[in-house]
């Protein structure tokens, strides 16, 4: 057990280190710009006042490492500075949007994970049957679709033709939970379709890989029932790869929300990031980028930790 704790600890430490390096990258990336930062970003014709405000906001007069630690320190204490575009505190801009994004991604995860694991499992068990072929053909098509294509097809179908769901998913705090769910139906469905296809294919591959191992042949030759082979012999060994698949796709969801949010004008962090990039609102871009990175890395760490714990060889060391 000690060894496992050690591995888990090591993985978490590595993740945090990676995050730290990324925060440096995010910060330095802006520094590395040729010429004067303010001019490069605001353009040659920016008014002197804007330039001055910009310099002050980014505290450009201080040395780089001082600014980095100030920035990072602020980040940890919840003070993210102010937006260049409208001067409002970034924490305020980001807070509820981030919650919205997480809400959307979680809703998509809750639907897609069970569905795709079950369907992927069934496809693997019924390999080369009609069912398997239909699954693999339809998932192959779906992973080829850009998210916005799926989104617009859903809009054309469910909100223009059938007028069932709104094509614009604007949330506000006064909505009840059910209303919120209703509002995000289409963006959620888009995410589910895209991510479930990937997850099904990978689950199927992982299960097939396990089913072809010699110990499964041994279980068959011991005269065990098919159901027992699947549940007691294949499943415990498939757990680790399948968990990995799920987590990888959850990490993908975190990022996948960006496009879907733009299509449905959903007030999430992705929408904010895209807007800020267009406006070159650097502090907001930095802050939301770091939050995305942290979430993404967090999910990946979780995946690795779970897959370490669920690996029977590691759980019972020599």
């Amino acid at each position: 057990m000690n060894m496992i704790l050690k591995m888990v600890f090591k993985r978490i430490a590595l993740g945090l280190l990676t995050l730290l390096v990324i925060s440096v990258l995010i910060f330095v990336g802006v520094e590395a710009l040729p010429g004067d930062l303010a001019e490069a970003i605001l353009g040659q014709n920016a008014s002197p006042e804007t330039v001055a405000a910009f310099r002050q906001e980014l505290k450009l007069d201080l040395p780089a490492h001082v600014r980095y630690f100030a920035w990072l320190g602020g980040f940890l204490t919840g003070d993210l500075g102010n937006s260049l575009a409208n001067g409002r505190p970034i924490a305020e801009l980001i807070g509820w949007r981030f919650a919205n994004s997480i809400f959307l991604a979680s809703a998509a995860a809750v639907v897609s994970v069970p569905v795709s694991v079950v369907l992927g499992l069934l496809a693997a068990l019924k390999r080369n049957t009609l069912f398997d072929k239909i699954i693999s053909m339809s998932t192959l098509s779906t992973i080829s679709f850009p998210e916005f294509f799926v989104a617009y097809i859903l809009i054309a179908l469910f909100s223009v033709k059938l007028v069932l769901f709104p094509s614009i998913s604007s949330l506000n705090d006064h909505m009840t939970f059910v209303e919120k769910i209703y509002t995000i139906t289409l963006p959620c469905l888009t995410l589910v379709l895209v991510v479930a296809a990937h997850m099904m294919r990978q689950t199927r591959a992982a299960i097939i890989n396990i089913l072809s191992s010699p110990f499964i042949e041994m279980a068959r030759l011991k005269g065990l029932k098919q159901s027992r082979i699947i549940v007691l012999h294949a499943f415990p060994n498939a757990l680790s790869p399948v968990i990995n698949v799920i987590a990888l796709n959850l990490a993908y969801l975190v990022v996948g929300v960006v496009i879907v949010e733009v299509v449905f004008v959903y007030p999430g962090l992705g929408q904010l990031l895209v807007d800020s990039v267009a406006k070159r609102d650097i502090p907001v871009v930095q802050a939301s980028g770091l939050i995305f990175a942290a979430t993404y890395i967090g999910v990946n760490i979780l995946a690795d930790v779970l897959s370490i714990i669920s690996n029977p060889r590691l759980r019972n060391p020599r």
Binding site: G15, L19, V21, I41, V277, A293, Y296
Partner: peptide, 21 residues
């Protein structure tokens, strides 16, 4: 490479493009 890959590609691209235009 690990570090670059620990960063979601789309976000990374967005950030870089926001800086270099």
């Amino acid at each position: 490479v690990d570090i670059l890959m620990a960063f979601p590609t789309l976000i990374f691209a967005l950030m870089v493009l926001s800086v270099v235009g």
